[in-house]
Amino acid sequence: MRKGLLVGLLVLIAAIPWIVKSGYVFHIATMIVLTIPLALSINLTLKLDQLSLAQPAFMGIGAYTAALLTMRLGVNPSLAVLAGGFLAVVIATVFGPIFLRIKGVYFVLLTYAFGQIVNLVFQEWTSLFGGNNGLYGIPRFSIFAHSFGETEYYILGLGVAALCFLAMYAIERSDVGAIFQALNEDEMFCRSIGSNAHSWRVAAFVMSAFMAGIAGALYAFYIGFISPDSFGFEATIDLIVINVIGGPGSVFGPIIGTIVVVPLLEFLREMRQYQFLVYGFCLVFFIMFFRRGLVSIFERQREVV
């Protein structure tokens, strides 16, 4: 019942840009829908009892791939977005099995190092990625000859966010979700009844990279400018804060977290140092006293973190 209320509320929030006709509200709404796949992608790795710090790196891989393909080779943006997601998948497929080879904290350390190194490559390989100045003048998104306006882009972003959400929701409700949960609770038992723990984990990691890659590519076409800054460790912190505040144990958690955090992020853009102070205290508070997050107001759920 309360879940119905929550879904209704979310639909209402999605409609706000048409109710309040303001460019700024529209911009924030678009940023929210573009951030949701990222927040969900990190949530997917949390479902495996792992924390991936490489999601912004995959976002960056998607963004730079899409931007370079359209700018240098004239590929249509719609195809470039898919190519960005695809390259993130390829890279995750290569590295995922190694990152996940040992259970536990190695994954976090390795994804952290991976993220930092990918960012260093964006910064240092100036001839391709433009260094710290980034890439300017990324064209607007278009599907073949049809160029997207702001409203259409918001709808596209909303659609992608909804698809990611539905995919995650389906995973949580299906046998696959049960397998993930069982893996966390008793891996030995799972393996003894024939489920391939390693493959499931890699598959989830690859899927999370795909979501991040697509989101990154869409972000590149929306903002029109990308630089290594957007895909660094600060972006990782944003995503973690979103998950912890929203509630990592439910698919609705990251959605609520994004809706709460992204507007704050946009308002506080000029005061980044205070923002991180606030983030830090929020994380401490939620971990100590409110670990199930805001979503627990709406639904009963399991503890994940």
Binding site: V108, I240, L277, V284, V305
Partner: peptide, 18 residues
Amino acid sequence: ELPGMIMSLAVSIILQSL
């Protein structure tokens, strides 16, 4: 492990911002 890690991230960004 997971909450401990997130707590240490929080301490890290608090010290950095200070």
